[in-house]
């Protein structure tokens, strides 16, 4: 319930005679708009970017365009199929199927990694959640497709986007984090796990 003391009664300012004539204020406003008009016309100061011909310069660091799946130094998919991104995703657009990793520096790898770009809201939460910086958003934004299926990107497509954009925006943090170095591995894990190494 709204209490009396919660209410602020606003008293509007009283207008002087000149203000109630409106004209001085109107002329002031007209001057402002005329200055803008003159600047746009004469000094050609337009804010518009003529899109297909011109393109805005984007901030590579944080522009959130289409996703990519990074490769590590050996060219393998960097993802460790931890499902953090799929969990963090508010739009539920990431679908991962994990399998045992064929490589010995990690346990799992994504056998399937599908990302529905039509459901995605480009919030960047997957990028934030990823522990190994495998999924990243690129400044590439003109994504088109002729069907809904085309807009669901699989692992290969996401990796190919990495290949296209790696020069422009290298992988942020190429080292796989969270896993111990090979040398002190035995101190932490059981020995049978170490056999694979």
């Amino acid at each position: 319930m709204i209490r009396d003391e919660d209410i602020l009664e606003l008293e509007e300012p009283k207008l002087s005679a000149a203000e109630r004539l409106y004209l001085p204020q109107i002329l002031g406003g007209m001057q402002t708009t005329m200055v803008h008009l003159g600047k746009t016309l004469l000094a050609n100061k337009k804010m518009t970017v003529q899109y297909p011909e011109e393109k805005r310069t984007l901030r590579l660091e944080n522009y959130r365009g289409i996703h990519r799946l990074n490769r590590d130094e050996k060219g393998r998919v960097a993802c460790v199929a931890c499902f953090m991104c799929a969990t963090a995703c508010p739009a539920h657009c990431i679908h991962i199927e994990a399998e045992e990793s064929p490589w010995d520096d990690r346990e799992k790898y994504p056998a399937k990694f599908d990302l529905d770009e039509l459901r995605c809201i480009f919030c960047g939460m997957c990028e934030e959640a990823c522990p190994v910086d495998a999924i990243e958003l690129t400044p590439h934004y003109d994504v088109v497709g002729r069907s809904r299926d085309e807009m669901i990107l699989d692992k290969e497509e996401l990796l190919s986007i990495y290949d296209k954009t790696a020069d422009v925006k290298p992988r942020k943090n190429p080292r796989i984090t969270g896993y111990p170095e090979v040398g002190n591995r035995s101190e932490q894990g059981p020995s049978d796990e170490g056999e694979g190494l």
Binding site: M1, I2, R3, D4, D6, I7
Partner: peptide, 12 residues
């Protein structure tokens, strides 16, 4: 109604 109670009264 007294000033300050505008519209329906809503339980907190």
């Amino acid at each position: 109604r007294p000033l300050g109670q505008i519209g329906k009264e809503v339980e907190p």
